[in-house]
Amino acid sequence: MKEILEKYKKEKGGEMSSYLLEPTRKQIKEACLWLLDRRKEKYDERILERFFKFKEGENKMYAIERVKGDKFKPIVNFLTGETKSTTPANLELISWLIDFKPRPLSIYLGSISKEEEIIQRYDQSKRQLAHLKKEMGITEIPETKVIQENNKSITIISQINPSLKITTIVSL
């Protein structure tokens, strides 16, 4: 809760600051509608389903539009400091709204599966490669491929130029 609230206060809602700077129930709903088709990371749909409790095959935009504003009141109260805590479903929706990572809470709190850990390490390797490219003054984007993957490791090869290839092996 603390880290999510700190990010919110520091960035004033970040990309969503026009909705979240001084949040109201209506603005929270509008932010959800605006982000629905724009923010679709791996677990985001599950976060939305947990909060909104969509029915099978239901149009999500229409379902959110029908939600009464009272459902967003605890979120407003938490973001404005009227309450010091809120439910996990509310926290996950807030983390989605402000793009807090990693999300959902189960990943943030450390219950990471092997697949999720591989994905995180792969992303870290890509960041390290970007840093190395910057240090070497390389401006083109190298071709990067996963050449081997199993439940214990992932091997990535990046070709910087015809004579320089970087192989990264991430082990679990």
Rank of each mutant, 00 (worst) to 15 (best):
E56P: 07
E56C: 04
G57W: 12
G57T: 09
E58D: 05
N59R: 13
N59Y: 05
N59M: 06
Y62T: 12
Y62V: 12
Y62F: 11
Y62C: 05
A63Q: 06
A63N: 03
A63M: 04
A63P: 02
I64T: 00
E65T: 04
R66A: 07
V67G: 00
V67I: 15
K68V: 08
K68P: 00
K68Y: 09
G69K: 10
G69D: 08
K71R: 15
F72I: 04
F72M: 08
F72R: 07
K73E: 12
P74H: 04
P74E: 03
P74V: 08
P74F: 02
I75N: 00
V76M: 06
V76R: 11
V76E: 11
N77W: 12
N77T: 03
N77Y: 09
L79T: 12
L79Y: 08
T80Q: 09
G81R: 13
G81H: 05
E82C: 04
T83I: 15
T83H: 03
T83D: 06
T83S: 15
K84M: 12
T86S: 03
T86L: 01
T87P: 01
T87K: 15
P88D: 14
P88T: 12
P88G: 03
P88I: 11
N90Q: 07
L91F: 02
L91E: 05
L93A: 06
I94G: 00
I94K: 04
I94R: 07
S95M: 14
S95E: 09
S95R: 15
W96F: 15
L97N: 00
I98H: 01
D99E: 15
D99F: 14
D99Y: 14
F100W: 10
F100E: 05
P102N: 11
R103Q: 08
R103S: 05
P104A: 07
P104W: 04
L105A: 02
S106A: 10
S106V: 13
Y108T: 06
L109H: 05
G110L: 07
S111Y: 14
I112D: 03
I112Q: 10
I112M: 13
I112V: 15
S113E: 04
K114V: 09
E115V: 08
E115C: 03
E115P: 01
E116A: 06
E116H: 05
E117D: 07
E117C: 05
I118V: 05
Q120E: 09
Q120Y: 08
Y122T: 10
D123I: 08
D123Q: 11
R127F: 05
R127G: 02
R127T: 10
R127V: 11
Q128L: 14
L129D: 00
A130N: 13
H131K: 14
H131P: 00
H131W: 06
H131Q: 13
L132G: 02
L132M: 13
L132Q: 13
L132H: 11
L132S: 07
K133T: 01
K133C: 08
K134W: 03
K134M: 07
K134N: 09
K134G: 02
M136S: 04
G137A: 03
G137Y: 02
G137P: 01
G137D: 01
I138A: 01
I138L: 04
I138N: 01
I138T: 02
T139P: 01
E140W: 10
E140V: 07
P142N: 05
